[in-house]
Write a protein that binds this DNA or RNA. Structure first.
Lengths: 130, 130
DNA sequence: ATTGACGTTGACGTAAACGTAAAGGAGACT
DNA sequence: AGTCTCCTTTACGTTTACGTCAACGTCAAT
């Protein structure tokens, strides 16, 4: 199970367009847990998946601590019924949050569209020779 | 033009569920410019509209400085052609950004959905008597 | 006249998310 | 052996977005 492709910190940093410091910071907060070969970090596909999720979470404006709880959710042991029901509850909350955000975004896009139309109307008036 | 409803800082703070300090901070950064009656701030409908936009921007994870440039965009004088074309260009960038975010959100919602289905399958297996 | 509610301006404190040296280990080339 | 390159940890600095006093003005009610 310790086979498969691996990456160094420099490689993942370059690939995801972040700094070494950022990657290490995520590790300090527990968002990443790369293996070690001696003293050096070894990144596997799982770590890259996590990093991608972290960065998307950041683009969406989530704080790192919240991102960590979401990542933990995906990794939680789902053996017992109570655990599964807890996870399902959390997922519902997460989804409701995301859907609120989507509505905010759609509202914002619509408002930009309205404003853009008004600007274009102004521009047309200038063209007509207002 | 100085008629119409007005609000105090406490009233807008309560209504939008923020603190006085937050409102003043937004004023310091130039996101709000309430009038003054003597020394006290007087908030008009325009200020409340702005505050609503600010808070939505924040929910979407935009930094306050960026929110300010967007608000400024809405207020920019649109008299000259060059100005209008600049504004239209900025609007396009903004919209592209928002649409990227929307895609991120939709991806995230879809992944949550996948995971939820897997959890429900696990739960069904427990019910069946796995 | 004093109390209380509400407002004001500093100005220092804080949490998050890194940036940025400083100082050094370890393997590879020349 | 010396120099590169890449990695490491430690630790203080920075920016953003406010929180949190402190010290004070003002108006209405008691």
């Amino acid at each position: 199970m310790t086979s498969g492709p691996t990456w160094t910190i420099a490689q993942v940093a370059r690939e995801f367009n972040v700094t070494h410091r950022t990657v290490r910071h995520y590790e300090e907060l527990g968002l990443l847990q790369p293996e070690r070969r001696g003293i050096q970090r070894v990144f596997r596909p799982r770590d890259r998946t996590r990093l991608a999720l972290i960065l998307r979470g950041k683009r969406l404006g989530f704080p790192l601590e919240e991102i960590r709880t979401i990542l933990d959710l995906f990794d939680a042991p789902r053996g017992r019924r109570a655990q599964l029901e807890y996870v399902l509850g959390q997922l519902d909350e997460r989804r409701a949050d995301l859907e609120r955000r989507r509505r905010d975004i759609e509202d914002a896009i619509a408002e930009l569209g309205d404003f853009e139309r008004r600007c274009r109307a102004d521009l047309a008036r200038l063209d007509d020779g207002g």
